[in-house]
Structure formats: C-alpha cells, structure tokens
C-alpha cells in the first residue's frame, strides 16, 4: 500500500513535468510582453529592454525553463513579475478561498446528491423519483454563469437575503490566520462573522454545486438500482433487517465505488467551474488570481498557479484510488 503510493507519486513526476513544460511554452505564445505590460504602452524600447534583462526574459527559453524548473524542484515557485512577491506566499490566500468554496460546494453536492439518488432508487418510479430525476436532468444541463446570475438576481437583488458578491462583509473583514475563513472566524470565537462567511458561501457554493450534485444523484440512483437487485440484498431482507439498513448499509457500500469515481471527477471539474464562479461572484480565489496573471502576462504566477491546481487534481485522483481499497477489500494495490 505504502509502496503503491510511493510508485504513484513517482509516476506523477513526468506528468507534472510535462505539464509545466506545456504551460511554459503556451504562455509564451500569447502575444504581448510582460515588460511592456508593466511599463505601459508609452515606455521606450530601451526601458523595455532593460526590464526584460531584469526579469530574465532576454535569456533563451530553455535557460528560463530550467531556471524555473530548478526553483520548483527546490520548492520555490518563483516571484511575481508584477508585485515582486514570492508566488508561494501570494498563492495561499487565493488557494484557501477556492478550497473553501469548492469544499462547501462538493459537500452540498455529495450530501444532497447521494441521498436524492438513494431515495430515488429505493422508491423507484415514485413521485419523489420522478421529480428528483427531472431536477437532476435540468441540473446537469444548466450553465454555471446563468445559474450564478439567476441566484444573484433572485436571492441577493430581489429579496436581499444573501450578499451579491465577495467572501466577507466589506465593513468587517475577517482577520485571516489560515485564510480558510470558516476556521479563522471559529478559532477567534467570532460567530457573527462565521455566520456572515457562510452567508457569502451560499450563492456561489450552490451555483458551483448544482452540476456535480445532479451528476452524483444520477450515478447514485443507477448504481443503487443495480445493487438492490442482488442476491445479498434479498439475504439481508430475509434476516429481518429494516429496509433502511438494507439500503444504507448493504446496498450503499456496494454502490459506492462508481459514485466515488464520479465524485473524484467532479472535484476536478469543480476546480474548473470555480474560475467561472469566482468571476461572477468576485470571489478572490485561485481562478481569479491566475486569470489576472494572464492579463498581466505574469509568467511565474501563471505557471505556478496552474502547477498547483494540477497537483491538487492528481492528488484527488490518488486519494480516490486509495479509497476504493477501503471500501472493497478485494481491491489490492500492487
């Protein structure tokens, strides 16, 4: 098991290296030059050339690449060309903001999606099943930006129940410690602020959760329907077990592997969806951070930002693969 994890991590190295290389080449293909963006349109050619030297952009691309790579291998993600601050320091608050949002969203998606799917399968062809599955069908085909705007318009503007944008009350910002505000407000005992932070999470969280929730519900239902026909389900019922436990213990554990797979995939998609949601809700997350870096041609930020997101993506996949073995002892890692 440990050696399996070790081998998986070793296999990740070429994947991440290849990705760093592709991103490195791609951003250099975008028209525009960081020095020019930093100095402005009026800057003289000499000033731009001097800036290029300062940023190391005058060197051949492979020198730049290996310099960057060498840094990354030592845990140095480079320095923002715009703010001159280390990317590693800058990135965490943004990453924390995205993680908080994505975690909130996936939690909603998992809790509601799985239970809706289970109950739909249990009471197949009931009105609950029909309504849940129609909603799920609508849910998967809903564009995030449209959902986000609809939510903002209804709950923030029309009814003023929830804040339109942002992560915290403007007049009472959270005193950041871990940058995960749910935790920060709790450890400081600021329950009023905690409540505000949750209120800010609801609209973007719901917008982000809708599609994964619908997909998880549908997968759970079909996986459960198949399992509920099994012989061991009949055995459990023949023992006199309550239907609730037959469904939630015996059936669900057997249905869990395809559901887990889809959750892993959806968490990856969520990182992508977060960029759109962050734009609509002015959420100061990693998506917006990278997006802004692109418009400033801030090469190190773009490279390292994408590297960090990719790393999280592959780690999620690894964790999902390890969870399979926890569910089913027949799955061996070797």
């Amino acid at each position: 098991m440990l050696s399996y994890v070790g081998r998986r991590l070793v296999h990740l190295i070429p994947v991440l290296l290849g990705m760093v290389f592709i991103v490195f080449m791609m951003i250099r293909a975008i028209p525009g030059n960081p020095a020019q963006v930093i100095l402005g349109q009026q800057a003289t050619a000499e000033a731009v050339a001097a800036m290029n030297v300062k940023l190391g952009l005058d060197q051949p691309w492979y020198i730049q690449f290996f310099k960057y790579l060498g840094g990354v291998l030592q845990g140095n993600l480079g320095e923002s060309m715009r703010t001159r601050l280390p990317v590693a320091d800058e990135i965490w608050p943004h990453l924390a903001a995205t993680m908080e949002l994505a975690f909130f969203a996936i939690l909603i998606a998992i809790v509601i999606g799985i239970n809706a799917g289970i109950v739909s399968a249990w009471f197949q062809n009931s009105w609950f099943d029909y309504i849940a599955m129609v909603l799920a069908l609508v849910g998967v085909s809903m564009p995030i930006f449209w959902l986000g705007l609809l939510g903002q318009w209804t709950f923030a503007i029309e009814f003023s129940w929830l804040p339109t944008t942002g992560r915290e009350p403007v007049r009472d910002p959270v005193n950041a410690i871990t940058h995960l505000y749910i935790i920060d407000t709790l450890i400081q005992g600021r329950f009023d602020q905690f409540f505000e932070v949750v209120r800010h999470l609801i609209l973007p969280g719901a917008a982000l959760a809708t599609i994964p929730m619908a997909i998880i519900a549908r997968m759970t239902r079909s996986s459960m329907l198949e399992v509920l026909r099994s012989d061991y389900i009949r055995t459990a019922r023949a023992k006199g077990q309550k239907m609730f436990w037959v469904v939630y213990k015996h059936a669900f554990k057997n249905a869990a592997i395809p559901i887990l797979t889809i959750i892993g995939l959806q968490m990856g998609m969520l990182l992508g969806g977060a960029i759109l949601t962050e734009t609509i809700f002015a959420w100061p997350g990693i998506g917006r951070y990278i997006y802004e870096a692109i418009s400033f041609r801030d090469y190190p930020v773009i490279q390292s930002g994408i590297l960090v997101v990719a790393f999280i993506f592959v780690m999620i996949n690894l964790i999902v693969d390890l969870l399979y073995g926890l569910i089913d002892s027949r799955i061996k890692y070797d």
Binding site: D231, Y232, T235, A238, G240, R330
Partner: peptide
C-alpha cells in the same frame, strides 16, 4: 413480518457465491 423473518422462519438461497454481501 420483519420480526418473523430470520427469527421464526429463515431462508437460504441457491447461489452461495452471491448471497453473502461481498463487502462485509
């Protein structure tokens, strides 16, 4: 009926390979 099943009347099935839950 649940109180009868397993307690007063029990049942075993044809397929021993699939009649036990594989994950417990």
């Amino acid at each position: 009926m649940r109180r009868i099943r397993g307690n007063d009347i029990a049942m075993i099935f044809q397929e021993p390979m699939t009649s036990l839950n594989p994950l417990f």
